[in-house]
Amino acid sequence: MSIEVGSKLQGKVTGITHFGAFVELPGGSTGLVHISEVADNYVKDINEVLKVGDEVLVKVVNVEQDGKIGLSIRKAQDRPDRPDRPERPARPSRPEGSGRPSRPFNSQRPNRPQGGGRGPRPNQARPTVSFEDKMSRFLKDSEERISTLKRQTESKRGGRGARRG
């Protein structure tokens, strides 16, 4: 008997693995039902759904050149077609002058400088800052951050007296 893609056949489960079940088809050939094709819902353990010796209706999904046969139990089940989803309602348009201004997604904002507002403008010269000035500014910022963190952690511990040794 020739096995064709799309045909529905009755088979017998001959083996179960963690990734699927082997089903013996009429004519002596064997195909694999992958665990994702056993049921419509998620199957964590195939042993909860199938047992060796079960008779199942399968649909032939594919037949590879090397003789491997892909099967599906869930596609073999006749279910009524789901009704099409109704169209999504269109978003109501905003009246002019309310909410955010309408502009193209990638257009430039009129009141912001180019480059995201960071650093000097492209046509302006950058003031030269010495390494020592940069270092002193960094140290000042760093000390402020550390003192803020210390104050926050001490308040969470209940103050200076709550330290454990």
Rank of each mutant, 00 (worst) to 15 (best):
Q108A: 14
T30R: 14
K75R: 15
L57S: 12
P104Y: 12
L25A: 01
I46M: 00
G158H: 08
V38K: 06
R103I: 05
G159N: 05
G161N: 14
A76R: 00
F138T: 03
S107E: 13
G97A: 01
P127M: 11
G67N: 10
P122L: 06
S7W: 06
V52D: 01
I146P: 10
N123C: 07
R151L: 01
K134A: 12
K44V: 04
A90V: 11
P113N: 13
Q152M: 12
D81N: 10
G27L: 01
G15Y: 09
E37W: 02
A21Y: 00
I16V: 03
D45V: 07
L50D: 00
R91V: 04
P89H: 08
T148N: 10
G115M: 01
P83F: 06
S29K: 15
G97V: 03
Y42A: 07
K59V: 08
K75W: 00
R79C: 00
P89K: 13
A162E: 12
G119W: 02
R74F: 03
T148L: 10
G27D: 02
R151C: 00
R126T: 13
G119F: 07
V13T: 00
K150G: 05
A125H: 11
N123H: 15
F138S: 09
Q77I: 13
S155C: 01
F138A: 15
E48M: 09
I35V: 05
V61R: 11
K134W: 05
V52H: 02
G67K: 04
V13I: 03
K134E: 05
M135C: 04
G117M: 05
L71Y: 07
G31Y: 01
R100H: 06
R100N: 07
K140R: 11
G11K: 00
F105Q: 14
N47Q: 12
R145T: 13
E55S: 14
T30F: 08
T128F: 14
E37L: 04
L149C: 04
P92Y: 06
R109I: 08
R112N: 05
G159W: 09
S102L: 12
R103D: 02
A125Q: 14
Y42R: 06
A39R: 15
A39W: 08
G70R: 13
E143H: 15
T153P: 03
S2A: 15
